[in-house]
Structures are given as structure tokens and as C-alpha cells.
Design a protein around this nucleic acid. Sequence first.
RNA 1: GCGGGGGUCGCCCAGCCCGGUCAAAGGCGUAGGAUUUAGGCUCCUAUCUCUCAGGAGUUCGUGGGUUCAAAUCCCACCUCCCGCACCA
Length: 961
Amino acid sequence: MAINWASIEKKWQKKWDILSLHETNPDNTKNKFFLTVAYPYPNSPQHIGHGRTYTLTDVYARYKRMLGFNVLFPMAFHYTGTPILAMTKRLAENDPELISAFHDVYKIPLSTIKELDEPKKIAQYFHNEIKQGMIEMGYSIDWRREFTTIDEEYSKFIEWQFKKLDSGGFITRGSHPVGWCPKDGNPVGQHDTLGDVEPELGEYTVIKFNFGDSKLVTATLRPETIFGVTNIWIHPEIEYVKISLNNEKWIVSRDSMFKFEHLITDNSSTEIIPGNSLIGKWTENPFTQMKIQLLPASFVDSKNGTGLVMSVPSHAPYDYQAIVDFTQDSNLLSKYPDIDTNNLVPIDVIKTEKYDNTPAKQLISVRNIKNQDDPQLVDATKELYTLEFNSGKMLVIAGDYSNLPVKQAKEKVKTDLIKLGLASTLHEILNSPVICRCGTECIVKMFENQWFIDYGNLDWKKDAHFSINSMSLLPPDIKVEFHNTVDWLHQKACARGSGMGTVLPWDPNWIIESLSDSVIYMSYYTISRLIKENNLNPSNLPEEFFDYVFLGIGTLKSVSEQTKIDKSLLAEIRNEFLYFYPLDSRHSGRDLVPNHLTFFVFNHSAIFPNNLWPKQIVVNGSVLMDGKKMSKSFGNIIPLRQAVKTYGADPIRLGIMSAAELLQDADFSLELVKSFNERLNRMYDLVNEIKNTPNYDVTQADSIEKWLVNRLQRTIKVSTDSMDKLRVRESLHNIVYLLDIDLQWYNRRTTLSINDKNSFLKYFFETRIKLLAPFAPFFCEEVWEMFGHKDSITLQNWPTVDETLIDESAELSEELIKNTIEDINNILKVTKIQIQRISIYVPSSWKWSIFLFALKQEQLNLKELIENSLSNPEYSEFKKNIPKFCQNLFKELSTMNSDLKLRILRVGLFDEIKILKELQSFYKTHDDIQVDLYSEDDSKIYDPKNRSIHSRPMRPAIFLE
RNA sequence: GCGGGGGUCGCCCAGCCCGGUCAAAGGCGUAGGAUUUAGGCUCCUAUCUCUCAGGAGUUCGUGGGUUCAAAUCCCACCUCCCGCACCA
């Protein structure tokens, strides 16, 4: 009968709850194990992908619990941030895309959606949803410690954190460019834009060309090419403006004027100039003083840069093509008779190995570009830019900069131009237009007086490196990524103008941003229970409280007075923190390595003494759905709760855990979940059959039972080793698949009566179920109970290897039998004969003697082996067989695994006939085939084809008829 | 560009650190058989090529190298994926 997952899940959720099995308090008689996983941001329900990290953490928690640790696994919810704000707005505006996601994908009733009109309500809705999902998945969480990051008490904690960072000198202030929505007045990230476009910021160098009383202002990404300027491009059909700023008058396109608005000093003097009227006029290169003219070009984009372009035909395909277009157009030439085309010869500035001169020209001819409106010019420009940037060198014409690599020359020319007052910088969105979700086009804004956490601090980096080196990282390969991250991290903006969260304690205009208020909260779990249970409120939680509890600063008496918290309670809080901290294991997906997890290391080293720094970080890969990335647009998101309803929590847990090793992306498939469901069902049926049998005395195990007990011991050993490294896939593989294969073999081989067999299987499954318990807790609890146990399997000890049960000869015997069957099958395959009779010949004792002797040799020498054996008087009557045997033996041993060699040596000579006798019943019952066994030197041997001579130890000779 | 990770027998995925039990585990798929009224489930067998007795040959992105021996070590190359933030 199929397992009713829903009822089993309900039943055990309730039992765990009643027994408070997952609620953990300090207990000095036990070693503690404190592990946490990155708390969720509640802006959507959980899907299978989220399930991986949480399930892994829960599996680990359950494993550690069975090892006897006092395990604390808490959970909280991260309300801090802006995406929920944006969602609220979109809902208010009835954004059809979002409504559809809420209704069709998340299955939220429309009436409920209507009520979600505040950020906090959305967060609470999904918070609840996610929490329910976690309970349904069987996560063994101590919910008493739950909190959200906008709880007032938590905010006091974050205030304390920031004061600590500030007093430690880790907070700085400065300016930096950000993508910005002028309407919302907020920085924009990828999730704030239409189509989830990440704004790419680039820095233009704005070069000023003297033009009467004003400056023509061009924007370029390649200031180093200033030596090659031959002209300036103007779009004849757009409007330019003359604006006043900082004692200068700039000429820029009207469409780009807004970029300089904050610099404009005198609005009244803004003057409009038609592009056409500028063409043909003269200016000069401010750096080289070369006289150049203003030419018309249609590729000039009034919105890009300043709407004026300095023309470097040698290195810019657009410029080269525009010159060709102009000089070949007689209409234009006659329209602008003042333009001197002799002035437009390309000037090479940069050399590369690929091109000797005028690379732009060559690229254009290769690509067969016909005019300046050809879209291929974009690629050509990019190609040349990348090539010259990475491998170009400045030519002699660049004067002081000649021979410099372009990378360096670019920076140097730029800073020199700025120093000389000939240029300034302009930040711009390169992949424009980027549109904010509100519909406004985003711009770049210099964010002034931003607060930063200074991860660039070198002393701090040193501590972070040290911390990483002294902790355990799973898998170990991830360590290098942490060190790299520590190295390149620099100042990180830590506050924003809007969003939910904690107000920056010394500057109420700012709200602490989400990657900064989530770095030491693991410590808060240790005290949140007592804060909640004793109704402590923010007024009880001044700085002194946290100083005392976390750092031991102050005396119980003084702090108790300051906080109005009873001394004994205060001591209890301090004690609980000290009991659970440091954190034993931190879990998250690998996407958080370059940010959250590294920040977490940094902040611990800044705030806590080093005996309280984290001891381990575990990182797992993400989840693919049938090979594809999960995303709303692919429509392949499976909400976790829905999946639990359909397939059951345990099959899903097994499916996620067995799909891939820790760091690999897991390819999740419902097929896999279904197949686990079937396996568990089969096991369930079997347990039903065997549950009432008497206990089996394992010390009496014989033959194949002994072998299976061996296999079980082996499985305990490997799966324990794997669990310690959190190689859960490997662990499950052994517990589920490989053990199943052994079980199938056992079923074919056992000769026990059905009752005895069932009793043996009961013994076997009681252990196996324990191994499976961390992965499939509901199922294992149920089965454990079916076996008649009154207590929860959660409280059982993880199985350990019992050396007394290991019998290597049983293992070898089975190997001999399997090898022999395999050989027989091989022969059958090749000869395709129908057999009625099998004759098997085991080697005579002299072969065993030589075999064992050879095994003992560290360096086996064939010649010596043969000579040695020939000279041994005991073997004299077999002389003619010795060389051939030794040759084969030598070949076999040279590739034999050393473990197997040792095992054979430990067991020594054994009775092959006795073991192979089992084949008689094996073939009799299955195929009604007669099996005869002979020793090679048996006097009554039946051996018409003289096969017996080929027999070797562990490799009997065979004759089939 | 910088940093990280991959490319294994139809598919997924182990093995690689520490070279030899590797024609390479396991799952899925496929084929045949057993069971079944039938189907499903389950069990057995097969699943690179050749093979006249348990054998041989060619394979682990490509090309070199080291070694008695390479999927595994070294070098070069091709190719795919991810991160590079102020955002969860």
C-alpha cells in the first residue's frame, strides 16, 4: 500500500512539537553544535532551489544530533531591503506581470493580494508561507528564537553593531557613482529595472576643445587616442547648447545637457546653437595644438556622452567610415566648401601585433562595411577597443607616453588632462537606456557622502584571512574563493535612503542596508529566546547590554542597573551566548561567497574576540530544473509547499540531496523524486512484513548473512566519513543504492527460512533506517515506530562500526563466488552454448603456496619467482606447470589493488571447494544446472578438456557442457 | 579583462587531490527474459567494438609530455558556465 505522506508528516510534526525535540537550551553535560543558514528574504514563497541549502543544513543538524551533540538550529527572517518596497508599488499600480506571478505561480488568492498594500504585509505574508514550508519539509528548527530584522530589539542590536564598527574605525564616508532613478530618488540595481537589466556604468573622459570664448566638449572612452584626433563630429540636425558652469562656457548637445545640470551656474545665459551652424568651423587639439575642423556625421547620438565626438579615424571604425562617407559625397563636399579634406588623414597612435597601420580601415574592409550607419560598426569598435586596450602600445607620436601599454597610457593621459584643466570625467550608463520599473530612464548620479564599511582596510583583511585559514571550509575547494574575495573587497556602501531596516544610529537620514545588517546576527539567536520570553523591550537593550552579553564588558551589577534587567536573567543571557558561541557551522549557497559570507567573516573578526570567530562555513551549489536554470520566465519554478503536497517531503529531500555533490549545481528532476518515493514505499512494505519477527542474534550470522553484515558495517563506515565532509550525495549513494544492490544479491543467495530471513532483515533495517534518518526523517520515524520503538529516532545514536562483526573471509568468499559466476557468464556470452553441466576446478595447494608467497613480496620479480619455485623440492612434481602459472600470476598481481592483497594475506589459504559448493544450490534452484567441484589434484577428477591446469587461487578453472 | 568552476561510455552523475582493483560506480533510459489475465511495480540479463571458453582492441574535450603504467600528474590549446557589488 502506498505511503500516505500527508498523514505521516502531520503525525510526526505534531509529535516533535509535543516533545519539543528541536528546542535547544544550554546543557553543560553535552557538547553543543550551533549551526545556521542564511535567513530568507520574504519576497516570494520558497521553491525547490531554496530547499537545497535549508535541507542540507537540516540533514547536518539531524546527523549531529544523532552523534550526541546538543544541536541548535534556529531561523529568522530578513525583512531589510528595497525589493519588497518596489513590489508594493507595483501591486498598487496593478502591474499585470506581478499580479500574475502572485496569482498564477504563487497561488495567492486575489482577495489576499488586495490586502498586501504595505511592504510589511507582503513580508509577513511570505514569512508565514516560508515558515510553513520549512515545517512541512521537516526542518528541525528551534522556532522559539525566531525574529525579523525589523523587530525593534533587533534594531538595537544592529545599532550596537554599527557603533562597534565605527569605533573600530571601519566606517568611512565618501562619494561614488551609482545608477539612479531621478523620479524615485534611489539607486537602481538589476531588480529595479524593466527587464532586470543591470546598469553598466562607464567613465567617459570629457575633453574640452577651445572654441572662441567657450569650449567644445567631447566625451570619450579612449583619452589616450587624443594624439590621433583629426576633426570633431557634429550632428548637423540636432541642437546644441552653450551652458555656463564653473567660469566656463561649454557647448554640448541639448539632449545631454541634463547630465551637467548640477554643475550649471548660470541658467540665464543658456544659448541654443543649431548643429549645422557649427560645421566647418575650426578649433584645436588642446594637447597637441593641431588645428582641426568640425565635420558633419549622422552616427553621432545626441544623448550619448555630450553629443560631440572627437574623431580618431585610425583607431575608431565609426570615425574612419564617417570620413570616407564625407569625402566621397560630392553633395556634402559642395555643401561645406570650407572643409579641408587634406586635414583628415588618419594618424596612428597605437600599435598592436595584429595591425601595422590604420587598424580601423582594415577592420572595415574585412567586415565589408559600407557606411557609418552599418550596425556592424558596433562590433568592430568593440573588437578594436578590446584588442588595443589589452595588447596595444603607444607609438612615438604619443611623446612622453610612447611605448607605454595602452592600459597605462589611458589612465596617465586622463589624469594629466584633468590636472591641466583640459578635461574632466563623466559617468554614464553604457547600456542605456536602462528604464526603472517606474518608467523613468535611469541616469548616473554621484552619491555624495555615502557611508561605507571599509573592507579595504588592510589590517582588517589580515584578520579576515587569518580567520578563514583557521576555520573549516566545506567543501575545501571553496577556500581560495574566500581569500580572493577578501583581497579585492573594498569600501562597501552600507546605508540607503529607503527600505525597511534599522536607522543608522548617528545619521537618521540613512537606513542600514541588508548586506550589512545580516553579518553577525547568528549571535542574536543565542539571546533572542530570553529576550522574547522575558518581554525585554528596546529600552532594556542599550549598548551596555550587548557589550556585556557579547563581550563581557562591565559588571553584572552595573549593567543590570543600566538595563533594568534582573541580574540573574542577565547572567543567564550571557551564559546562553557563551554556551552556544562561536558558531560551529554557517550554511549558504555559493552565490553568497563573494558578499555575505565574506562580510560575515570580516564583521566577526572586527567585533568579537577571536575565540568567538566562526568555526566552519559550508557552501552548496544551486539547483537546476531538468538541466535549466530555474526562473519565472522559464516557468519551471516549483513552489516547495506544492511539491511537498504532491510528492511528500522525504522524497523531495532525498531528491535534492542525492542530485549532486556539495558544490556542484544539482540537476533536480521530479523523476528522481518519484523514484525515491517508490523505493521508500517498497521499503515500507517490506518493513510491514518483517516488523513482528523475533530479534536476530547477529553473532550467529553465517555465510551470506555474515557477508551482508559486513557490507552494512562498510556502509556505516563510508557514509559516516562522507557525512563528516557533508558529501551527502556519496553518503546517500551508499545507504540507498549500493546497499540495495547488496540486498538484492543477498536475497538470491540466502538459504534461511522465511522467518529467519525476516528476522535477519529486521536487524539489518533497524540499522539502515538510522543511517537514513537525517535525510528522510518522517519516513524513518514511522518505520522506527513500526519496529516497536517508543522513542523518536531523532534521539537514537548514529550507528558505529562494530569491528567484531567484520569477517574478511566472508567478504573474500563472496568475491570468489561472484568472480566465478562472472567468468561463467563470460564464457556463455562468447560461446552461446546451452549448459547443463558446470565443472569447476580449484587449484592445488602448491599454487596457493606460491600465490601467498608472491603476495608477501614488496617488489615482485618474475624471474626470481620462477627460479625460486622451481628450486623448491616440495613442488618438484609440478615443475612443468610452474613457469606458466607464475607468469599469469605475475600479470594478475601487478595490477591487483593493495587492499585486496592485504585482505587475502590476512585471511590466508581457505577452502575454495567448500565456498564454491554454494554454487550448486545457486544453479540448481535457478536454472536446474548441475555443478561439480574438483580440486586440481583430485584423483577422481572429471576433466576431459584438461582445464584444471589453468586454475589459480581466487580464479578457479571452468569447463561448461 | 580579473577571479572561480566545468567538458567522463545515450542522458544525469561519481572517480581526478593520493597514478595501478578503470571499459570506468550508481541512477535514468533502452533491449531481452522472469513474474502478471494484461499493464505497472519488482527481479534477472545485456547495453564502446570485435571475439571460434573466461580474451583482445579503442575510449574519459584536443594535442603534446612524464611514467613500467595516465580519466587521474605536467604543458599548451579549444569550449561551456558563474561572479565582478552597493543588490537580495
